[in-house]
Every structure is written in structure tokens, then in C-alpha cells.
Design a binder for these strands. Structure first.
Length: 306
RNA sequence: CGCGGGGUGGAGCAGUUUGGCAGCUCGUCGGGCUCAUAACCCGGAGGUCGGGGGUUCAAGUCCCUCCCCCGCAA
């Protein structure tokens, strides 16, 4: 089969690599245009572009594929399109091009967590399981029929970045199994139950402000789920401290009250229900570090309410 | 040349403004106390102050230069 791959961030790379080492031919890759990034605003290619280029696969970077990528895609004459976190909406015209349609690798247990940040939201909402779903794309956003699913447990202190990495590999395996079954003709299309669907809005920095009135399960979810971006944070004196990793723990007090704060006991903060132990944090200008290390050189008085 | 913060014993920091003895918390090593402890007391080891050059009687501190780390904005 001639396969065209569409994807952009690190999450998509394992799927692309799996396809490349598979028996089918990846004839082209679509990804988002290079963007100015990081210090110095250097133009940076997407991880998918870097991967494709390393394998000598033609790369296409239309600003909008449904507007100025259609002809290129037609020319590639794909039998199948595979998308994984591409970041652009496909029009019906684009969807109609590949013979066998478009398979999408989505990082949630659909129909829950449609949208662009499914992994973060699963953690954010304090859920215990996450997963990946392969699906046939249709015109809606993550609304197409489901094909295969794989699930995994979310670790107590697992961050969005870490879970993303795991799911990207799980997704690549599931994608290859999906294609095997597609060829074998054993694939079942399962419509999504609209009554159970949830759609997550895009993330932004405002979501990072920690509200300790909420139960520890959700405060912990917010801290772990927003790492590495946009990150949960709290003002300590006049500094905004990013909270990078946390776990639930024993303890009670006024919401936001610092219950423990020293290099041995770490940093424990009371929530509306229960308490959280901050495991990693990051001060302005500094590196991410363990809370115990931070407290060797900075004081947060126990009893302070954050 | 997008904006900004930072590099000081093993860890985290102060000291740089105004040049003048290498400081704090923790860890570590030895000793003591205690039924006991992440507690407490006493003592010790450990630092080319990111690299190089310059100014000076004297540089962590001032000047020039290079390297590395981080945040913001995109």
C-alpha cells in the first residue's frame, strides 16, 4: 500500500517510524510548517518533519492542507492516509482522496476526550486509565467510527509528558495492528456513543493557577496533567513557582495551608479534601528540582496559606 | 541580533550595588547524648566562585570575551 502520513509533534513520531519499518511504503508526509521557536526565535522543524527527512521521505508543509495541499496529496495517490496529532482539520475533499480512507491515532479512550489535549485532560480530571484509539476519520473532530483500542493505567505521579511518551509507543503498536486487520478484512467499525462523549477545549496558561479548595485528587491531577505545558503554578511571596509533579498524601488543614515545609519532610499543602505533596517544582530562572532541594535554599514557612 | 533570569564545597542558596578573612540550610565523616529517632549537642573534611583575558596593592565582586543552563514571548 501507498501510505501518506500526517502528524506533527513527538507523539506522532513512533507511529511514523513503525509505518516506515513496516511492509508498506510511506510515500509522503504532511506536517505543520516550521515555526520560530525557543530562545532566539529560530525556525524549527516539527519532530515529524525531522523524522521523515532523516528517512528521505518527501515532506509537505501546507499552511492549510484543505486549501493548498489537496493537489500534492492527489499526486501522491495514497491507498491510505494515517494521521496522528496533525493539528489541522481535514476537509471532506481531503478525506476522499485515499482509497481506504483515513485512520487516526487518537490518544484517549474515545468517545471520551475528543479534542487536541486528550492526555492532559485525562490526568487533569483525576482519571485512573488512559489509552489510545484508532478510528476512521470523518468530517467532525474525533467523531469517526472507532477501530481498535488499547488502555493503560495512569501512574499516581505520572505527568502528561511521561504519559504522552508511553501512549505514543502504544499508539504505534495499535496502528500497526489496525493496518494488519484492515488488510485481513477483519476490522470492525464501532460508532461512538454520542451520549458518552466529552470534548476538551484547548489548554491555556490560565488553567495553571492552582485552586487548593478543590480535592487533592484534582489538585494533583492539575499539577501532573499540565506538565510540561502550561504547568500549574502558585505565588510564593512575589515569585511564581511552577509545580511540576505531585502525589496525594495524608494531611488536613485550611485549603492552601503549608502543612510541611523542610528539606526532610518536603512540601505538603492542604487541599479542600486531603493534601498533596509537591515532589518537583521550578522557580523563576531555575531548573526543575525536587521540592526538598528547593527548600534547602528557600524558606516557605509552615502555616502559610498559598 | 525578540525579551529576561542564572552558573559560588555533594544538593539548594546568600554574598556582586559600595573590590578587602568563602557565608547559610541540608548532606557527608568522626565523637557525644537518648529506650529511641529524619531529634539534639560537639568537632572535621570538602570550593580552580562556569572558562579565558584585563584593571588593581587586592577581584566571587569592576571591564572585555567565550561556554553552558532556565523562563517568557512565538
Amino acid at each position: 500500500m501507498r501510505i501518506v502520513f500526517m502528524g506533527t509533534p513527538e507523539f506522532a513520531v513512533p507511529s511514523l517510524e513503525a509505518l516506515i519499518s513496516g511492509e508498506d511504503e510511506v510515500v509522503g508526509v504532511f506536517t505543520q510548517p516550521d515555526r520560530p521557536k525557543g530562545r532566539g526565535n529560530k525556525m524549527t522543524p516539527s519532530p515529524v518533519k525531522a523524522c521523515a527527512a532523516a528517512h528521505g521521505i518527501p515532506v509537505f508543509q501546507p499552511e492549510r492542507i484543505r486549501r493548498d495541499g489537496v493537489e500534492d496529496l492527489k499526486t501522491l495517490a495514497p491507498d491510505l492516509c494515517v494521521t496522528a496529532a496533525f493539528g489541522q482539520i481535514l476537509s471532506q475533499e481531503v478525506l476522499d482522496i485515499p482509497t481506504y480512507g483515513n485512520i487516526n491515532v487518537h490518544a484517549s479512550l474515545l468517545p471520551r476526550h475528543r479534542g487536541s489535549a486528550p492526555i492532559a485532560y485525562a490526568i487533569l480530571q483525576g482519571e485512573e486509565k488512559a489509552g489510545v484509539t484508532t478510528m476512521m476519520m470523518d468530517k467532525g473532530i474525533d467523531t469517526g467510527d472507532m477501530l481498535l483500542k488499547a488502555e493503560t493505567e495512569i501512574g499516581e505521579t505520572e505527568t502528561c509528558g511521561e504519559l504522552t511518551e508511553r501512549l505514543s509507543r502504544l499508539g504505534a503498536e495499535l496502528l500497526m495492528e489496525t493496518i494488519r486487520q484492515l488488510k485481513a478484512g477483519t476490522l470492525q467499525r464501532i460508532p461512538q456513543n454520542e451520549a458518552e462523549m466529552t470534548y476538551d477545549p484547548m489548554m491555556n496558561k490560565e488553567m495553571g493557577q492552582v485552586d487548593f479548595d478543590r480535592p487533592a485528587r484534582l489538585v494533583k491531577g492539575q499539577i501532573n496533567g499540565l506538565n510540561p505545558w502550561p504547568c500549574a503554578s502558585v505565588m510564593v511571596g512575589d515569585e511564581r513557582i511552577k509545580l511540576m509533579r505531585a502525589a496525594r498524601t495524608e494531611g488536613a488543614g485550611r485549603p492552601g495551608e503549608v502543612l510541611v515545609s523542610d528539606p526532610k519532610g518536603g512540601l505538603v499543602i492542604a487541599c479542600g479534601e486531603g493534601a498533596v505533596k509537591v515532589l518537583e517544582l521550578q522557580a523563576p530562572g531555575g531548573k526543575k528540582m525536587r521540592a526538598e532541594d528547593y527548600l534547602r535554599g528557600h524558606e516557605i514557612k509552615a502555616g502559610t496559606v498559598l
